[in-house]
Design a protein around this nucleic acid. Structure first.
Length: 289
DNA sequence: CCGACGTCCTGCTAGC
DNA sequence: TGCTAGCAGGACGTCG
């Protein structure tokens, strides 16, 4: 499940390979992605040259020389890799962008939660992202985070998944950051103290930075732009470690559902207040109907 | 307005 | 051994 560190790894891997490539054609697969590729976009992109590849949150933007931009999202299982046009095709391919060089960019996505979008101008894309994304973790300030958390009574875990509060954090790094900050995921966002907010912000930056250093976490299908898997999953303290001993205190890691997502935490290292405990303890596991 | 929950999608796997 | 229900979750729509 690509989050900021995985997307950053893909961008760093791909940027040298895609930059200055001149597009000769687009091939679109029979199954639509989250957004349907419009045939006229192919005409817009053909003959244009890629200027680069940058990341914002979990999105990747690919500016073109004529002023348009492509916007990519890997969803859950998206993969972007560069191949010779003649290379054998994998299954679940949804888009191939062919270049004058004889190479092409391939977008593969098993679960089709990903998307590729065309924007006629950078200003339109700026506006699209501005209404969906808050600050990058590295740019986030204590006062920004405090103001955003003050506005909501949602569990802090749910707030961290909100891309308008901080861009790029997903389920894995939200759990890891909360562990590092010694905060239980159930704690209402507006009940964090100023010190807890600082610790949480530092924890987010720490886990994101170290995950980027490890080329992200490979849980199921994730690979970087070079096709290499990540290694940060070996550093996970709580995510995916239900019933396993906490690496700090050996207490069994708990798993609860918050905001519809599995949330892993150590009940010893991330103690809940008595009030929160009483409110959430009975709801250990919820089935969906 | 806010927050909780459902939806999409496919591969894997726990459990019978 | 074979079948299937359930689970994984990012973004977004809907409902109370």
């Amino acid at each position: 499940m690509p989050e900021l560190p995985e997307v950053e790894t893909v961008v760093r891997d791909l940027r040298p390979a895609v930059s200055q490539q001149r597009v000769t054609g687009i091939w679109v697969g029979p199954h639509s992605l989250r957004r349907i590729w419009q045939p006229e976009w192919s005409e817009q992109v053909a003959g244009d040259t890629i200027l680069g590849l940058t990341r914002r949150g979990k999105w990747m933007r690919m500016p073109m020389q004529r002023g348009g931009e492509l916007l990519w999202h890997l969803g859950m299982t998206g993969q972007m890799t560069v191949h010779a046009i003649s290379d054998p095709l994998a299954d679940h391919l949804h888009l191939r962008m062919q270049w004058e060089s004889g190479h092409e960019l391939r977008f593969r996505d098993i679960r089709r939660f990903g998307s590729v979008d065309w924007f006629a101008s950078s200003a339109q894309l700026d506006a699209f992202l501005a209404e969906r994304l808050g600050p990058e973790p590295f740019d986030l300030t204590d006062s920004q985070l405090a103001a955003a958390l003050q506005r909501t009574t949602r569990p802090i875990k749910a707030a961290l998944l909100d891309q308008l509060i901080v861009a790029g954090v997903g389920n894995i790094y939200a759990d890891e950051a909360l562990f590092r900050a010694h905060l239980p995921p159930q704690k209402p966002a507006n009940q964090l103290t100023a010190d807890e907010i600082t610790q949480l912000r530092l924890a987010i930056v720490h886990v994101i930075e170290h995950a980027i250093d490890g080329r992200g976490s490979t849980i199921r299908n994730y690979v970087g732009g070079s096709g290499l898997e990540g290694s940060y999953q070996d550093e996970h303290q709580v995510y995916g470690r239900t019933d396993q001993p906490c690496r700090n205190c050996a207490t069994a890691i708990h798993c609860v559902r918050i905001a519809g997502r599995s949330s892993h935490y150590c009940p010893q290292c991330q103690p809940e207040s008595l009030a929160v405990q009483a409110a959430t303890a009975p709801a250990k596991r919820k089935r969906r109907g």
